[in-house]
Amino acid sequence: MTTTITATDVAHQAETVPALEIRKLVKFFGGLRAVNDFDLVVKQGELAGLIGPNGAGKTTVFNMISGLYVPSGGRILLGGEDIEGLEPHEITQLGVGRTFQNIRLFQNLSVLDNVRIAYHAHAGYNLLDATVRARRFTIQERELTERAQDFLAIFKLERVQDELARNLPYGEQRRVEIARALASNPRLLLLDEPAAGMNPAEIVTLMDLVHFVRERFNLTILLIEHQMRFVMGICERISVMDFGEVIARGTPTEIQDNPRVVEAYLGKGAVRVE
C-alpha cells in the first residue's frame, strides 16, 4: 500500500483497470440500511447508468463516491485506488466531478466565477501572492480567467459570463453546472438526474451534450436518472437498484426485458424504447 495517491496515478491507469469499482458497499443511517452489498464496475470511457425507484439509495451511493458520506462498509476504488474516508474535496482533486439533483450552483456568484472556482486547486498562486498582488498573481489570474472563458465558450455560455447564476433559466443553469463540474478536469463524471424537469426536446439536446462531453473530454460517466427515454437512449450499461441493492444489470435491452426490473420500477405494460 503506497503512502500517497496522486491524480496522475488515477488518470494514467492501464486500460484494464476500471475507472470506478465498488465492492460490497454498505451504508447505515442509524438503524436504517440504506445501501446493502452494492457492487459496481464502470470501465474506462463507459457511459453507465444507475436507475431505480425513489428511495432506492442511488444518491446515497453517489454521495459515498464523492465523499460526502462515509461508507459503513465496503470499498470504493477510483482507478484502482481506495478512496473511502477521503475528504470530498480530495476526491474531487483526484478526478471526480459531480452534479446534483437540485442544481447546486453558487447562486450569488457570476457564471464565470462559478467556473473559475473549479480551478482553485490549480490556481498557480498562493495567498501571499494574492495579498501583495505579486506578478505571479496577475499573470496566473489572467490565465485562469481566460481558460475559464474559453471553457464557457465551449458550452456556448460566454455571453452570460457575468450574469448571476440564480438569474439564469433552469436549462441554462443545468448547462453551467455540467460545465463547472467538467472545468475541474475529472476522469469520472457523476451526473445526478441531469434531465430532471426537462421536456422531450430538451432531453434530446441533453443527450447530445452528454455524448459530446464524453468524446471531447475523454471521460467515464455514471449517471442517475428517472427519465427512461434518456437512460435507455444514452447508457451503454445500466444497473438497477431497489431497497439499497442491485437487482439487475445489463444493456438497456436486457434491462427492459428483465421481469424483476419491470416489476419493481418500470411498471406493467412498459413500452420498449428504441
Binding site: M1, T2, T3, T4, I5, T6, A7, T8, A11, G85, L86, E90, Q93, L94, Y119, A121, H122, G124, R147, S184, N185, R216, F217, N218
Partner: peptide, 20 residues
C-alpha cells in the same frame, strides 16, 4: 485539453489513517 495546467504538480493526497 487533458490536464488543467500541465506545469502544475499533480495533487497529492495523504493516506495515513488518522482515525486511530
Amino acid at each position: 485539453m487533458q490536464q488543467a495546467n500541465p506545469s502544475q504538480p499533480t495533487r497529492v493526497i495523504a493516506r495515513h489513517p488518522g482515525a486511530h
